[in-house]
Amino acid sequence: MAQMTMIQAITDALRVELKNDENVLVFGEDVGQNGGVFRATEGLQKEFGEERVFDTPLAESGIGGLAIGLAMEGYRPVPEIQFFGFVYEVIDSISGQMARMRYRSGGTKNAPITIRSPFGGGVHTPELHADSLEGLMAQQPGLKVVIPSTPYDAKGLLISAIRDNDPVIYLEHMKLYRSFRGEVPEGEYTIELGKADVKREGKDVTIVTYGAMVHASLKAAEELEKNGVDVEVVDLRTVSPLDIDTILESVKKTNRVVVVQEAQRQAGIAANVVAEIQERAILHLEAPVLRVAAPDTVYAFSEAEEVWLPNYNDIIEKVNTVMNF
């Protein structure tokens, strides 16, 4: 099996699907000749031609609208929003339009669109690049929101997203793009959307998390193990819809939970996870479910990122709190 970075796994998934289905189109700002600002589409225009992989004018709302229109002609668009902080420019096309296509047409039309977009903190971007806006997307009925944490998951989830007949927001954490390699099978394989993955088994406490925080949580788990705390790490992989069954199975085993997200604390995915757990498993809990999250400010100026972003020390502290409750 090949060792790949996450960005290579993403390119590989796009290549597999461009080959697999001639209706798949990849487009966005700088994705053609330039291969994307992170090189996610490197070499794809050369391989598949300018009709399949192409640059767009610089306008996010236009990109979203273009995707919807192409879907009406039977295409399977995979547009890129260059950075997810730019999503505010295309919120109507996403939440107001493609998320509602199947619904507003009474089931007669659909929008098999996968929007790929980099996001996530720790790489010193200017404003409106790093923001974790998955909670905003998860609030919109009609969208699935996927966030891979490993190269293996990235490829399998992206192929599933592209094959899905409804819109999927596929968010790629910038810090994970090239920070490590992992085994990625050649050719096609899929990972079912809406299914979490237990990244580390443990019996004392459950961490529910996703994206880059999976790695911070795994690191924290290693540290905690030295003190005899056996941590289970559940990687949501799809933050909307939530895989409640996998979460509950783990909660019922460990009876203690910390939910970790990089996003600000207010509203968002972690709040939703906590609500589901207390509604469905309160009698299994030995301690309140705690959250690790960023403060409720606008995303930090890049020089302050390291102090602002939740880190493994924060996770260790919260895990110790629920263990000692």
């Binding site: 919807i68 229109g69 192409l70 009406m72 039977g74 109507d92 096309s93 039309k109």
Partner: peptide
Amino acid sequence: ALPPQIIIGAQYVQAAGVGLGLKMR
């Protein structure tokens, strides 16, 4: 056809996509 659009102008960007699709097909 699509159902009548409520958001003013949203149909314009979508039309570009349908128009490009028709051309490519």
